[in-house]
Design a protein around this nucleic acid. Sequence first.
DNA 1: ACAAATCGGTTGTTTTTACAACAGAAAAAG
DNA 2: CTTTTTCTGTTGTAAAAACAACCGATTTGT
Lengths: 219, 219
Amino acid sequence: MKKYVHILKKTQMFSGVMDTEIASMLSCLGARLYDYKKGEYVLRRGEHISDIMVLVEGNLHIQKDDYWGSRSILGHIDVGEMFGEAYVAPESGAILNDVVAVEDSTVIFFDVKRIITTCPSACRFHALVVQNMFFAISEKNRKLVQKLGHMSKRTTREKLISYLSEEANRRSSASFTIPFNRQQLADFLSVDRSAMSNELCKMRDEGLIEFEKNKFRLL
Amino acid sequence: MKKYVHILKKTQMFSGVMDTEIASMLSCLGARLYDYKKGEYVLRRGEHISDIMVLVEGNLHIQKDDYWGSRSILGHIDVGEMFGEAYVAPESGAILNDVVAVEDSTVIFFDVKRIITTCPSACRFHALVVQNMFFAISEKNRKLVQKLGHMSKRTTREKLISYLSEEANRRSSASFTIPFNRQQLADFLSVDRSAMSNELCKMRDEGLIEFEKNKFRLL
DNA sequence: ACAAATCGGTTGTTTTTACAACAGAAAAAG
DNA sequence: CTTTTTCTGTTGTAAAAACAACCGATTTGT
């Protein structure tokens, strides 16, 4: 587990906590490490959890399949990102979505009760971690609202413009690389891939955007 | 402010905190009370805040207008509900949506720094409030994910089924009253009102649902 | 009690999307 | 290096949604 301290150090959760301190906090926070092969499920719809997880290696997708097998990718998780925090409240119900490894991945589980119950002695930085978590969840909340902003657009073009504008804005650059291929982007925005591909090309022909593979440029 | 202690007592934020304790905590938490007339804006897109708010009287909508004036209602806030928690992180940007009073309303503002910085002496229940907030934000997070679940459905009918199923499930009853009129429900699901009305009637004719005004029944 | 505004349902037209099927290019596997 | 698979763009068709316009009923305001 110690080999991932340098990853954890860069997470929002441990922001401001020293390396040595992180190592000693791991047991205090009830940390457990799990490995997943590409394609394996980290979380499944219907499960109940009381953990918050951090991805320390690999890449995960948050996805949902409906009755008829149509898949929506609700988001993706990069190394250093936290997930599962939406289901840790005592009154929270079952998990609504699947989390699946899109490449070989490693995840650290933290018992939420151990996090929010400040330990009496050892952890000097425990209160800081709680604050970090607070802000991290708050921030995630904001991102969900932002995604809802894209989804609430009526047409495929409007959704694309909303998403691409935000990416450009977030990177402070008209050129950027997105973390999705076409099918994944279509799933993310909940539209048909071919229709989206068609729309992207129309937008390119109209001089609104340029793109090559995952690299986009707004004009 | 004291007249609203009985409301605050029932909020997630002060769950488990005694009445007398709440009253004494208000100043410690930097609470301020504001009144709004119907139609007035509580928060505007582009503002920056470092407060968490609780509605203690009235009814609010979270909404967004795009360039051309098309309005999406992203959600509604009932008495006792908390909002604004998505923007309190230090690195958080400007508010993305408007919050507007749909009837005369009263809101209490809490300075987030005062909440997460546990005071050294007075507040015995401060740690509990932090935990409550933690779970509350977590829970809100889950609800956003759930709404994304509806929004990710392709057709109006699927969105309606997703929304109505969840409401029925949440109330544990096939009959329930929704907090929206037709236009508001259409805005909430980001679909056209007339098309939605049409679809609802088709579903009724097919024997899937019954409804009268805001009262629905799944069959 | 009356006038005005809002609300919900209906219909027809236009626009957009979903779906299906296919082909060339690129990437991965052997 | 060759074969297979995946990825992306293209097209045509059918289905669905958006839009606009209208009407009757209900609610609100005066």
